[in-house]
Design a protein around this nucleic acid. Structure first.
Lengths: 216, 216
DNA sequence: CCAATATGTGGACTTGAGTCCATTTGTAAC
DNA sequence: GTTACAAATGGACTCAAGTCCACATATTGG
C-alpha cells in the first residue's frame, strides 16, 4: 500500500535523495512480497527457498536478489507494516503513561511485555531476520534491534534521572542484556524445549528488569 | 590424549555401553582434529570449509561427516579439553568459596566473570558451535549451554534458600536470561560494533546479576 | 520521437553443506 | 587362519544460497 520501499517504518528515508526504483521494479517487488507471503503461509517460512519464491513469481533469481539481498531482508519487508504499527503503538502508550504520571520502569515493563508478545507472534519471520546476524550484513536488518535498544536505553536513562534505578548501571549494556533473551533462538528453545509459556517468559523478563529498581 | 571421543568432559559416557569406534577410525578422528586445528590457525575458522579439512587430511567428506556431524561438533571437539578444564576449575573455585563462607551470589559473580572471559577467548570456535543452534540438532552441541544453565540455576537456587535473593524469582528463566547476553552473536556485536571491552561486558553482566540481590 | 544511460532481468554458475551408498577393512568369534 | 559382519570410507550427488553478466527495458532530456 505504501509507496515506500525501505523496511522499518520509522527512521524513514527523510525524503531527500530517493534512490530511483523503476516503476516495473516496484511492481515486481510487490509481486515478490505477495508471492512469498502465500508460499510462506502454505509451506511454512523455513520450507520455502529463495529459488522457490522466484520461480513461483515467474522471475529469475537475479531479480529476486536485486530487491532483497537475502531471505532475512525479504522477511523484514514482509513485516514492515506490522513493525511500524508496533512502534507507533508503543510510542503512543508510552506517551500516555507519561501523561498518567507512570514511572519509567513501569513503561519499560509494559514495553518488554509487548515485545515478548510481538516476538511470539512473529517468531517464524523474525527467525529468518535474525539468522543474518547483527553484523556488517545489510545495515537495516539490525534496525529493529537498534530501535529496541534505543527505546530500552532511553527508558533506563530516564529512570536514572528520576532516581528509579541506580546511576551506577551501564545503561547501554543493560539494554542489550535485557533484549538478549528475546533473540528468537533462545525464545524458541524456551518455548519448545523448556515448555515455557509466553506469559512465563514475559513475567520472567519483567522480573529481571524490575530487580534493577531497588537501590544499589 | 584422552581416549574418549564424546565432547564435553563431564557428563561422561558413564562407562557402560561404549559405542564401538574402530582403532583406525579413532586415528582418523585425531588426524582430522589436528588438521582442522592447523587450518583454522592458518586461515581463520570461518574461512575453512568442511571440504577443505577433509581434503587437507586426505580423506573423503563422508569420513569427516561420520566423525563430526557438522562444523559445530568439530569445533566443540576441538575445545573439549579446555571445556573440561574450565568446568573443573569452576567447580573447584566454587567449592573453595563455599569453604570460605562466601555467598552464592558471590559465586555467581565469579562464575559469570569467568564465563565472559572464556567466551572472549574462544569466540571463533564458539561462534561455529552456536551457529547450529540450541535445538533438535545433535543433542550434545547444547551441552555447554546445558551445563552453564545447571550451574547458574543451581547457584540461584541455593541463593534463594539462603535468602540472598527473592523466592519469587523464576530461577530457570533467570538463568537463561543471564546467559543469553553471552551468546557469541551479541558478544561479538558488543565487542566489535559497540566497542565494549571484555571488562565492561563482565561488569555489566555481573551488575545485572547483582541487582537480583536486594529484597523484592 | 530519439538517443543515451541508468536500472532491471533471467538464468547459468560457483560455493559450501550435508547425504548416500557401493565398496573396503578391522575385529571378534570360532 | 578363516569368516562374517559391523564400522568405515571416498567421492559423487542433492540442495539452497548467493554471484555474475550479457541482454532488455524504462526514463529522461532534447
Amino acid at each position: 500500500m505504501q509507496p515506500r520501499s525501505i523496511p522499518l517504518g520509522s527512521i524513514s528515508e527523510s525524503g531527500s535523495e530517493e534512490r530511483h526504483e523503476r516503476r516495473d521494479a516496484a511492481a515486481n517487488r510487490e509481486l515478490l512480497l505477495q508471492t512469498a507471503e502465500v508460499l510462506f503461509a502454505q509451506h511454512g517460512v523455513e520450507n520455502v527457498s529463495m529459488a522457490d519464491i522466484a520461480q513461483a513469481a515467474g522471475v529469475g533469481k537475479g531479480t529476486l536478489y536485486r530487491r532483497f539481498a537475502n531471505k532475512g531482508e525479504l522477511c523484514l519487508a514482509l513485516m514492515d507494516a506490522q513493525l511500524s504499527d508496533f512502534q507507533e503503538a508503543m510510542l503512543a502508550r508510552m506517551r500516555q503513561m507519561v501523561v498518567d504520571g507512570e514511572s519509567s520502569m513501569a513503561q519499560l515493563d509494559m514495553f518488554l511485555d509487548a515485545l515478548v508478545h510481538f516476538t511470539a507472534v512473529h517468531q517464524p519471520l523474525l527467525c529468518e531476520v535474525q539468522r543474518e546476524g547483527l553484523f556488517g550484513n545489510s545495515t537495516h536488518l539490525s534496525l529493529p534491534h537498534f530501535w529496541q535498544h534505543m527505546t530500552v536505553s532511553g527508558l533506563l536513562q530516564t529512570a536514572v534521572l528520576r532516581q528509579e534505578i541506580s546511576a551506577e548501571l551501564d545503561i547501554a549494556y543493560i539494554a542489550d542484556a535485557l533484549l538478549a533473551p528475546l533473540k528468537v533462538d533462545l525464545f524458541r528453545f524456551q518455548r519448545e524445549v523448556r515448555g515455557f509459556s509466553v506469559e512465563r517468559i514475559s513475567a520472567g523478563l519483567r522480573s529481571l528488569a524490575a530487580s534493577l529498581k531497588q537501590v544499589t
